[in-house]
Every structure is written in structure tokens, then in C-alpha cells.
Design a protein around this nucleic acid. Structure first.
Lengths: 138, 138
DNA sequence: GTCTATGCAAAGTTTTTGCACCTGG
DNA sequence: CCAGGTGCAAAAACTTTGCATAGAC
């Protein structure tokens, strides 16, 4: 039967129900690439205008739980959510102009290896942004 | 007259006034090594029990402005403040047990160089923590 | 039909702001 | 004095929670 899309399969496998709200939240994350809970709400409300912010928070937690979504901290404000395994990159945040540049995660391979070797620490390198000053502002 | 301590000098140089609250906040940061606004308040209140949280926030901002204090993001919660130029190290935060390990900033030198060369980005490498899984939890 | 998920409203947390009073220079 | 700093209270921003109802299976 059903071709079974990734979202439905993953939800059901883990005992979660497939609801239109979950689909709307996931689709919003996909569409945005990156989004805060607030921006994800606004995007998802294009599909379902009655969708509630608390539903967004609850579903982002579920989507992270089933490894479809991840979040990163890019600054002082709300965390940013993105699709897991897509858009894997470091975020360079400029402390002067707040611009964000994305660079390949491989850029940090040597650091990742060092931390593994010296400290047996398995780095999730893109969870936090890297702050500094960009080419224009330095 | 006054030997002129660092705090007074730096404040006056930049046109800020020297108040006992500023001294208490700065002393608390020094004493704690690392502290959230809340923990800094508690520490500073040992000296001045009437000190207010909003004064702590305002003065941490001033102290950062005059480069005596810096803050880092170690997780989802409040930022952590520390004395500038002291305690320079990376924070490895375990996503499982939340333990924090400090490692020398030099560990990331190769990443810092790469970002400077390739992206003309001047990294403030210890502003954000590095998340991952520690030796025990991996 | 059962049990999870949702909407709504309220509360919790953390940080910021307005304002009258206080104080350093 | 007087501009800047402080305490207090209120507001703002962000996130979580309780509960009655709706909806997935």
C-alpha cells in the first residue's frame, strides 16, 4: 500500500501519530532551510492558519526525537531548526554586522580529529555557531 | 593618590562612573571564574545585599563594553560571563550528561587559520561552546 | 473506543525598559 | 549641582504546561 513518505514512516516506526500539523511543521522546516520556532509557525500557517505556536514547539521536539530535524544555536536568540543531514555546514556569525556565512563542515575536520584523539570527544561541530568578524567588518 | 586599579581606570577612560555596584559585579565575575547573570547576582549580593538583577545585566554590558568581561554561550540557557583574557579555553559540552570539559584554545588553531585564509573571518573561537558526546557517553 | 495530539490560556523563565530617586565627579 | 546610575516594578520575549476537546488508528 502507501508509498510511505519518510515523515509518516519515521513517525509510525516510533509510535507517533501522523497529523497534518506535524506535516505542516516539517514542510515548513524543509521550505525554510533554517528557521526559528516563530518563523516556522508563520510558514506553516500558510497551510494551516489555526496552527498554534505550542504545537510547533511540541512537534519540533518530536521531529528532533525521530532524527528528521536538528537545531543549532546561532546567537543570543531562539535556536534555529533545520532538516537533519541536509544543510550540514558551519555558521560563521559576525559579531559586528550579524551576517551569517555558511562553510562546509569539513573545514573543521582537523579540530574534530584532535578532539577525538586527545579527549575522546565526539564533536557535533555544527551545533553551535562560530563567532568572529567577517571580511567586511574586521 | 589612588594607585588606580584596572576597573576604575578603564571605566573612567571610557567616561563611565565608578560605582560600588560595578565593583561588586566585576569582583563577582572574578571570584566565580564563570557565571550566569543569576549566579553573579548571588555572589555580588554577598557584598551588597540590595543589588538588583537589572543592575547586574546593565553592568555586565558595560564591563563587556570596556573589554574587562566577555560572555560565551555554553548551552540553551543563559550566557556565561568571565573575565576577559583569563580562562581562555574551549568548552566541550556533552549533549548526553551535560558535563563541561575545558581544553586549550590552541586546539582549534588549525580551524582558526583555515577560516582566516579561506574566508577572511577572524574567529572568536571560544564564544560558543562545542557540543558533542564525552568519553563516557559516546 | 481509546489514547495521543491540538488549541487555548495561563504560567514560568530570562532579559529589557521606564521612571523616580540617588550619587559620583 | 547635574548627568549618569540604581532600584523597583512593569513589560517584553521566549518557552512550557494544564486541561478540555478533537482526531488518528
Amino acid at each position: 500500500m502507501s508509498a510511505g513518505d519518510l515523515l509518516s514512516d519515521r513517525l509510525r516506526d516510533r509510535g507517533f501519530r501522523v497529523t497534518m500539523q506535524r506535516r505542516a511543521v516539517f514542510d515548513a522546516v524543509v521550505a525554510l532551510g533554517h528557521g526559528t520556532p516563530e518563523s516556522i509557525l508563520r510558514k506553516a500557517q500558510e497551510v494551516d492558519a489555526t496552527l498554534n505556536l505550542s504545537t510547533v514547539y511540541r512537534n519540533l521536539e518530536v521531529l528532533e526525537d525521530i532524527d528528521l530535524v536538528r537545531h543549532a544555536h546561532l546567537g543570543h536568540g531562539s535556536p534555529t531548526y533545520h532538516v537533519a543531514h541536509e544543510h550540514r555546514h558551519l555558521h560563521l556569525v559576525c559579531s559586528v554586522c550579524n551576517s551569517i556565512v555558511e562553510v562546509p563542515v569539513e573545514t573543521a575536520d582537523s579540530l574534530v580529529e584532535l578532539l577525538a584523539d586527545r579527549h575522546q570527544f565526539a564533536v557535533d561541530i555544527d551545533h553551535f555557531a562560530i563567532q568572529g568578524r567577517c571580511a567586511q567588518c574586521r
